[in-house]
C-alpha cells in the first residue's frame, strides 16, 4: 500500500525587487496531506489550478522531497529508499514530453527498460506486449518525431508501464487527446486497476473521467484536503437537489396553480421560462425527492402534451465549483 502521512511541501521562490535585491517568498503547495492508495483502486485527486495535485504526484514518485510527513510505498520510505520506490512506481503525464523524439517507439521503451535494470529477454517480451496493448505495433520502428500527438501519448503510457509498476500516477493523461483515444485510455486504466491490481492515482480536469473511473476522490484546495469520499457520495453531500426540466407548448394559469400546490407539498422550487419564439415553455423544478411521476400525472390530467423531459442529476464538477466558491466566499 502507498501511504501518504501528514505530508507538507513548501516552495521557496525568488522575488526580484530591485536589480541587486532579491527576496524569497514561501508558497505552501501541500499542507498536512494524508491519503492511501491500495492496489486495485483508482484514486482521483481533484482541485483547481495550484491546488497541489502535481506536487503531490512528484512527491509520491520521489521527484520532490516533502518538507515534513512521510510517504511509504509497500513499507519503503520515498526519501531514504528512493531507488526501491522508483522501481515500484511510475508516472504518465499529459502532453508530448518525456520521450526521445529521435528514437523509435521500440528504442524508447528499450532505453527506459534498461534504466529500470530489466533483463534483456524479459524486456523484449514486455516491449512487444506493451506496443500491442497501446496499438503501436505498426509504428514501433518509426522515430517518435513522426508520431501524431495521440501516438506519442500512447507511447507515454507504454513507457509508464515498462517497469510493471505496482502504483501508477496519471497526471492529466488525456490532456489534448481525441475523444476515441481518451475513451480507449480510460478503459485501459480501468483494466490496469481491476484486472492487473495496480494502484492508480489520477488527476484530471475532465470531471466525467474522474466520475467514470475513480473509486474514491480527494479534493484539494490550496494544498489542503477539503473532502474525501466516493464520487457519488461526494456529489450527494454537496448537492442533494435534482433538476427536472419539462418542455410544454403552453401552461394555462389553472395548471400552473395546481402544479405550484403540488410542489409546495414536496418543498420543491419551480421556475418557468418562455422560449424566444413563444412556441414552448420550459418548467424547471428543483427537488430533493423523486416527483417526476406525480408531475407528469398532473400535466396529463390537464391534457398538456409534454414535448421533452430531462432529469439532471448533480455532477461532481458542480460540487467542486460549489466548494471552491464557498471557500472563496
Amino acid at each position: 500500500m502507498l501511504i501518504v502521512d501528514g505530508v507538507s511541501k513548501v516552495y521557496q521562490s525568488k522575488v526580484r525587487e530591485k536589480l541587486w535585491k532579491t527576496t524569497y517568498k514561501e508558497v505552501k503547495a501541500v499542507e498536512d496531506l494524508s491519503f492511501q492508495i491500495e492496489p486495485g483502486k483508482i484514486i482521483g485527486l481533484l482541485g483547481m489550478n495550484g491546488a497541489g495535485k502535481t506536487t503531490t504526484i512528484k512527491m509520491c514518485t520521489t521527484l520532490l522531497e516533502p518538507n515534513s510527513g512521510s510517504i511509504t510505498v509497500d513499507g519503503y520510505d520515498a526519501v531514504k529508499d528512493d531507488r526501491k520506490v522508483k522501481s515500484l512506481v511510475n508516472m504518465i503525464a499529459g502532453g508530448e514530453r518525456m520521450l526521445y523524439w529521435r528514437l523509435t517507439g521500440r528504442e524508447n521503451l528499450n532505453y527506459f527498460g534498461n534504466l529500470y535494470g530489466i533483463k534483456e529477454a524479459t524486456l523484449k517480451q514486455r516491449i512487444d506486449l506493451l506496443l500491442k496493448e497501446v496499438g503501436l505495433e505498426d509504428a514501433a520502428d518509426t522515430p517518435v518525431e513522426q508520431y501524431s500527438k495521440g501516438m506519442k501519448q500512447r507511447l507515454q503510457i507504454a513507457r509508464g508501464l515498462i517497469n510493471d509498476p505496482k502504483y501508477l500516477f496519471l497526471d492529466e493523461p488525456t490532456l489534448g487527446l481525441d475523444a476515441p483515444i481518451a475513451k480507449h485510455l480510460r478503459s485501459y486504466v480501468k483494466t490496469l486497476a481491476k484486472e492487473k491490481n495496480k494502484g492508480v492515482l489520477l488527476t484530471s480536469h475532465y470531471i466525467d473521467e474522474v466520475e467514470e473511473l475513480c473509486d474514491e476522490v480527494y479534493i484539494l484546495d490550496k494544498g489542503r484536503l477539503i473532502l474525501h469520499d466516493t464520487p457519488e457520495r461526494l456529489t450527494a453531500s454537496v448537492f442533494k437537489e435534482n433538476s427536472l426540466h419539462i418542455w410544454v407548448p403552453a401552461l394555462p394559469n389553472r395548471t400552473q396553480k395546481e402544479l405550484e400546490k403540488l410542489l409546495r407539498t414536496y418543498h420543491a422550487k419551480m421556475e418557468i421560462k418562455q422560449s424566444i419564439d413563444l412556441e414552448e415553455i420550459e418548467i424547471i423544478i428543483k427537488t430533493e425527492q423523486e416527483i417526476t411521476s406525480s408531475v407528469l400525472a398532473l400535466l396529463s390530467n390537464h391534457q398538456l402534451t409534454v414535448l421533452k423531459l430531462v432529469v439532471e442529476q448533480p455532477k461532481l464538477e458542480d460540487a467542486i465549483l460549489h466548494l471552491a466558491e464557498r471557500r472563496i466566499g
Binding site: T61, T62, L63, D82, R83, K84, K86, S87, V89, N90, M91, A93, R97, M98, L99, Y100, F112, N114, L115, Y116, G117, R159, N163
Partner: peptide, 10 residues
C-alpha cells in the same frame, strides 16, 4: 526528458 530519466532508479 529529465523527469522521465529521474523517475528511474538508474
Amino acid at each position: 526528458t529529465l523527469e522521465a530519466l529521474l523517475l528511474t532508479p538508474s
